[in-house]
């Protein structure tokens, strides 16, 4: 995104500015409303919680709800960490190699290959579920985390390739040419010239991949057994019904969101760039 510095603002009347802020605040309230209900409910003592009083401020703050739900979520949380981290690292490394080749070490038909790769990002996953179920069952990869990691790595390739390809397209051709003149081969150029300048792209790609793997439900519910459920499946099973106490549903939803929210708050800049890449706008 390009930000223009020192741009001239047309002066507007004070009431226009006020109206603008009011509107911006109204939107902010809409986006924060569910968070408010989530937080105040999760922080009330279980005895104080009532669905009909979901908007009321807590009389006293209490962490008891987290104590109730954490034992039920812990395993899913651990599974998701063990699944999402390797999935995002491996997918990003492969994406870096693909992006480099498709932008700086092109072969005939590279653009066509890139289009074919990109399409993988947009397919409705329903259309691969049955074959995936068969193949993963046949290879005994269904049940544990390994199969889930594999699937996240592969279906992550289109977006990671896209992110790195856009990034490397932006770096100057001279850098690569200089390495070539020095007699460096493709692999050496990639490792010694391209990778060292790619940390920003890695940040974007890993954050994006981590978030999608952490938030995925469909692959997790298809490919894992109960003891390997990722957090989303575990969350749906303990909180995905109106029969669950309201306070437990809210506390577990909050716990399940914490890692991705933390990433968003701390590294929001890179998250934004991933968004733009997702719209094919490197």
């Amino acid at each position: 995104m390009t930000r223009r510095e020192g741009r001239i603002r047309a002066p507007s009347a004070p009431y226009v500015a006020t109206a603008r802020y009011l509107a911006l605040f109204a939107f902010a309230c809409f986006f924060l409303m569910p968070v408010y209900a989530l937080l105040v409910t999760a922080l009330k003592s279980p005895a104080e919680v009532s669905v009909v009083r979901m908007w009321q401020w807590p009389h006293e703050l209490s962490l008891d709800n987290f104590g109730i739900v954490w034992p039920k979520l812990r395993e899913g949380f651990a599974n998701s960490v063990m699944m999402a981290l390797p999935a995002s690292v491996i997918s990003s490394l492969l994406g870096a190699a693909n992006g480099f080749v498709l932008s700086k070490w092109r072969f005939p038909g590279a653009d066509f290959a890139f289009s074919l790769i990109l399409f993988g990002m947009f397919i409705p996953y329903q259309a691969v579920l049955i074959p995936m179920f068969q193949v993963m069952s046949y290879t005994h990869l269904r049940g544990g985390l390994l199969g889930l990691i594999l699937v996240h790595v592969i279906y992550g390739l289109p977006i990671t390739t896209l992110i790195f390809r856009s990034y490397f397209t932006g770096i100057s051709e001279e850098l690569i040419e200089a390495a070539k003149v020095d007699g460096a081969g493709m692999l050496r150029t990639f490792i010694h010239v391209a990778l060292p300048i790619a940390p920003p792209a890695f940040a974007v790609s890993m954050i994006w991949q981590f978030t999608s793997a952490w938030n995925d439900f469909l692959f997790g519910v298809l490919l894992t057994n109960k003891d390997r459920w990722p957090i989303t499946v575990a969350l749906n099973n303990i909180a995905g019904s109106q029969a669950v106490p309201f306070n437990e549903a809210m506390a577990s939803a909050l716990l399940a969101c914490l890692p991705t929210l933390a990433v968003y708050v701390l590294l929001g800049r890179f998250f934004m760039r991933g968004l733009m890449a997702g719209a094919l706008k490197g």
Binding site: F31, T211, F217, L235, T260, L261, F271
Partner: peptide, 14 residues
């Protein structure tokens, strides 16, 4: 933008 970082499962539960 932050709701985008939250899974659809958690979104639905809320």
């Amino acid at each position: 933008l932050f709701p985008m970082a939250i899974s659809f499962i958690a979104t639905a539960i809320i």
